[in-house]
Design a protein around this nucleic acid. Structure first.
Length: 571
RNA sequence: UGGGCGAUCGACUAAUGGUAGGUCAAGUGCCUUUGGAGCACUUUGUCCAGGUUCGAAUCCUGGUCGCCCAGCCA
């Protein structure tokens, strides 16, 4: 998919909230805790799904903080579980990180270190710090104890070093079936921290790995692989989310036992958003069950979904940076993200006029068959974007909701006898209607004031409303997809007894308008570029578009004051 | 109820012993050729109880509440 290429709009300086991570790194640099070594970070996704907005926070922190201190960041795939990982995810992740605006120092894989990790395991075995356990998964669970009771030693815990070495070598050689044995660290079965109760280092998995193929049939666990991978890459600050805090003692234990580069793990709070699910497992379920049209469905909180929806990387970055990082777990109002997006889109979106639900407006005193051109700004927020000529004629389309036969209080738009402005064109006053057999309005007739060309009357007359329009003879038709929140509950996981988060799916999250009437200039729209349909919202061209049929996605609606007034009046 | 972590407007986040500030949301007004944008103003907050101090959101003690951990997932 194309990315934004027109960058005549300067990326604004993002003033990020101060945060404790930056303070800690600054302190380490000041004290030369790592000598003169550069600040080195890493972004370590597991390639088992697409990146989502929660990852964007980690990416901005990992890359952003390192950059602030003149450091470097590696992209490292944490690919230690071949059963869930795929090349498709590896590719999409790289694409998404780049789209967000970051480039890595080195592209790494935990699987690059399988050989080194294996040697270190032998070293630990020789030192009597690890052992091969023949217990079944079930038995290991039983021996682990509970949150309140200590665990019990495995009967295999005190095997001789030579026997351990022999068994582990044979595990690697493929002599044993999956699940028959594991390699465990010998730490403390009575530790109050369950992660320290002889954690599993290696399990037997006769599975094909997306990179190492069938070279290995034993694979390291996260805890045994992550810290050492950091260490190998001289990572100074290994940032991860809060739920790994309990793993930190183990992270340090392996590094200390091995006497290798002392990377340090620092935890920060995970991003949570209202109306949004950020669990890869559940997002995968939505994709697999066809609840959405793939990982890049514009309703998905994935980076590819937001991209297709028309969100900008700049907007996502400024959202994430405005959040900072703390150790408190909270939930951000989705409106915050929307606000930062609108803020960015408003500055850069090319304007156009589009009528989603057309109602014909006939100007009785405008010459038949005549076409005039009015000059229109491409972006009122950015004079450098220039102007264009838009055709205007006797028959136009206006938005159905911009006309009311009987206007409610505070309704400023068109109604019989009322004068309004047609954006960039003329003042018009409605006079009569044409209705169909069932009584709905199919045509509004009006007269225009030729003196008001351009949108101002020489006599200083004011109108309360300005409306968008397209000339009936000069439009292109397009499908427009109107997206709304995927879930209707602020907390998608909040369901009554026995319910599922699927019950919270918003049945109206996608509404398709098949025949919107767009201004001619929109025929030139490019995938990846932001547009504003004036008074309606921000839109982007969907890659589903063909030469015969254009498809636009609504990124975000414009704030709608009238809708609010009407809702309040009705409530 | 073992261990770890945390608690500041409705939401997020600053204030690092010295005026509780900013953003979103909500509300009011101004302005406007997008009822958009912009501008101004307003409402609402230091979990509780003690203590130290001239002075406490910050330090101490004790509570309360919330999140995470018992995968051969990461």
């Amino acid at each position: 998919m194309a990315v934004h290429t027109d960058s005549h709009v300067e990326t604004p300086e993002i003033h990020s909230t101060p945060n404790f991570l930056r303070d800690m790194i600054a302190e380490d640099v000041r004290l030369k805790r790592y000598g003169n070594a550069v600040v080195q970070t890493r972004f370590p996704p597991e390639p088992n799904g697409y990146l989502h907005i929660g990852h964007a926070k980690a990416i901005c922190l990992d890359f952003g903080l390192a950059d602030e201190f003149g450091g470097k960041t590696n992209l490292r795939f944490d690919d230690t579980n071949p059963e869930k990982e795929e090349q498709e995810y590896v590719d999409s992740i790289q694409n998404d990180v780049r789209w967000l605006g970051f480039d890595w120092e080195r592209l790494c894989y935990a699987s690059d270190y399988f050989g080194q990790l294996y040697e270190w395991a032998i070293q630990l075995l020789r030192a009597g710090k690890a052992y091969v356990d023949d217990l079944s998964a079930d038995e290991i669970r039983q021996h682990r104890g509970t949150l309140t009771e200590p665990g019990r030693d495995s009967p295999y815990r005190n095997r001789a070093v030579e026997e351990n070495l022999d068994l582990f070598t044979r595990m690697k050689a493929g002599e044993f079936p999956d699940g028959s044995r594991v390699l465990r660290a010998k730490i403390d079965m009575a530790s109050p921290n369950i992660n320290m109760r002889d954690p599993i280092m290696y399990r037997i998995l006769h599975a094909e790995h997306h990179r190492t193929g069938n070279e290995w049939c034993i694979y390291p666990m996260y805890d045994y692989a992550h810290g050492q991978s950091d260490s190998i890459e001289n990572v100074t600050h290994s940032m991860c989310t809060l739920e790994f805090a309990d793993h930190r003692p183990l992270y340090r234990w392996f590094i200390e036992q091995l006497g290798i580069f002392p990377s340090q793990q620092i935890e920060f709070d995970r991003l949570n958003l209202t109306y949004t699910l950020l669990s890869k497992r559940k997002l995968l379920q939505l994709v697999q069950e066809g609840r959405v049209n793939g990982w890049d469905d514009p309703r998905m909180p994935t980076l590819s979904g937001f991209r297709r929806r028309g969100f900008t990387p700049e907007g996502i970055r400024s959202f994430v940076t405005s959040l900072g990082a703390t150790r408190t777990n909270g939930i951000i109002d989705f409106e915050m993200l929307e606000h930062l997006q609108r803020d960015d889109l408003n500055k850069r979106a090319t304007r156009g006029m589009a009528v989603l639900r057309p109602l014909k407006l006939v100007i009785d005193n405008f010459p038949e068959g005549q076409t005039e051109y009015v000059e229109v700004a491409n972006n009122p927020e950015d004079p450098a974007a220039g102007t264009r000529q838009v055709p205007f004629s006797r028959e136009l389309y206006i938005e159905r909701e911009d006309f009311r036969e009987v206007p409610p209080p505070k309704y400023y738009r068109l109604s019989p006898g009322k004068e309004v402005r047609l954006r960039n064109a003329y003042f018009v006053t409605a006079h009569s209607l044409v209705k169909d057999a069932v009584g709905s309005v199919v045509e509004v007739h009006c007269t225009y004031d030729p003196a008001s060309r351009g949108g101002n009357s020489p006599d200083g007359r004011k109108v309360k409303s300005t409306m968008h329009w397209v000339s009936a003879a000069h439009t292109i038709s397009a499908e427009v997809r109107l997206y709304d929140k995927l879930f209707s509950n602020p907390n998608p996981l909040h369901v009554p007894e026995g319910g599922s988060f699927l019950d919270n799916l918003n049945p109206n999250s996608l509404e398709v308008v098949s025949h919107a009437k767009l201004e001619l200039s929109l025929a030139e729209a490019k995938v990846g570029a932001p547009y504003q349909f004036e008074r309606v919202g921000y839109f982007c061209l969907d890659p589903d578009s063909t030469a015969e049929k254009l498809v636009f996605n609504r990124t975000l609606a414009l704030k709608d004051t009238w809708a609010r007034i009407e809702k309040k009046a009705g409530a």
